[in-house]
């Protein structure tokens, strides 16, 4: 299980204008895991992602894919990008083509696949993201949520091993963010490694197997979500808040509604199950 797939070692990066974006970042990503990267705006999440498939080159330190330092030769980069896909935050910068169908076909065609395989993959990706009925629509007539789903389809069609989502649910309505979480669930079951960045602490807490918290270009903590997010000093330092599930749980324990031995709930359902019915009202 704990096979390393991606690794950042002592990564340092500063933008050409001198702003330091990453400072000594060390991060290990295990195959098949769900890793959430939490951090406020400008913490360096997107910059870190750009390193994972070789778009940015670190000033020092390196990225390893399956134990090997990645090479920045053209052919090797194409190989790497076949394995590591990124869904960017702003769908407008990702969708360059005016037609949904054409845009989704761009990635798989770059992998040198045959036309039949590409058509097959485009269709599957559209099914998975529920964009099939948009195939004839021009991208500029889509809503934000639709654009977002099309940009996800464009990466899914490349069938990468590791999929990185940069702020995926930002700007999505509740229904579509719920559907998006289902797509993630499906991808996880298929054994894909998923990295997701967000500043939504509730989402990160409930979804992830492991968590890394970034603050001003550094990873200030990483570990299990239940351990990190219960520590106010970390949460505060990173300009985040404690997930409402944990807060409610703590409050219920403090006021004696729950025994202190009660397990930390991971989802809303868990929490509700933990809460005992009032005596006299017990049913079923």
């Amino acid at each position: 299980m704990s096979e390393l797939i991606l690794e950042a070692v002592n990564l340092e990066y500063s933008y050409p204008d001198g702003t330091s974006a990453l400072r000594k970042v060390n991060l290990q990503v295990q195959k098949g895991e769900r890793l959430a990267i939490l951090g406020s705006n400008g913490a360096g999440k997107s910059t870190l992602f750009m390193h994972f498939n070789g778009i940015y080159r670190p000033n020092s330190g390196f990225i390893k894919y399956q134990g090997q330092d990645i090479s920045y030769k053209k052919q090797d980069l194409i190989e790497l990008r076949k394995k590591v896909g990124i869904v960017f935050q702003d769908p407008d910068s990702q969708l360059f083509s005016a037609s949904v169908w054409q845009d989704i076909s761009f990635g798989p065609l770059n992998l040198g696949l045959s036309e039949e395989v590409v058509i097959e993959r485009v269709k599957q990706a559209m099914l998975d993201t529920e964009t099939t009925d948009l195939e004839d629509k021009p991208t500029h007539l889509l809503s934000y949520g639709q654009k977002k789903r099309v940009s996800i389809a464009g990466v899914l069609a490349m069938e990468p091993e590791v999929i990185i989502f940069d702020e995926p649910t930002a700007g999505m309505d509740p229904r579509h963010s719920h559907e998006f979480m289902q797509i993630l669930e499906k991808l996880s079951l298929e054994g894909k490694t998923i990295i997701l960045s967000t500043h939504d602490v509730d989402l990160a807490y409930s979804w992830s197997d492991r968590l890394a918290i970034m603050y001003r270009g550094e990873i200030i903590a990483h570990g299990l979500p239940g351990e990190l997010l219960t520590r106010p000093e970390i949460v505060k330092r990173a300009d985040l808040t404690i997930p409402w599930l944990i807060e409610t749980h703590t409050e219920l324990v403090k006021k004696g509604w729950l025994p202190s031995s009660a397990p930390l709930p991971k989802t809303k359902t868990d929490l509700f199950q933990n809460i005992p019915a009032k005596s006299g009202q017990q049913s079923a």
């Binding site: 778009i55 990124i86 037609s99 761009f106 770059n110 490349m158």
Partner: peptide, 13 residues
């Protein structure tokens, strides 16, 4: 990130 290598190739309907 999607493997662009100097030539935009897309499939048309």
């Amino acid at each position: 990130a999607r493997g662009y290598n100097g030539e935009i190739r897309v499939l048309s309907q």
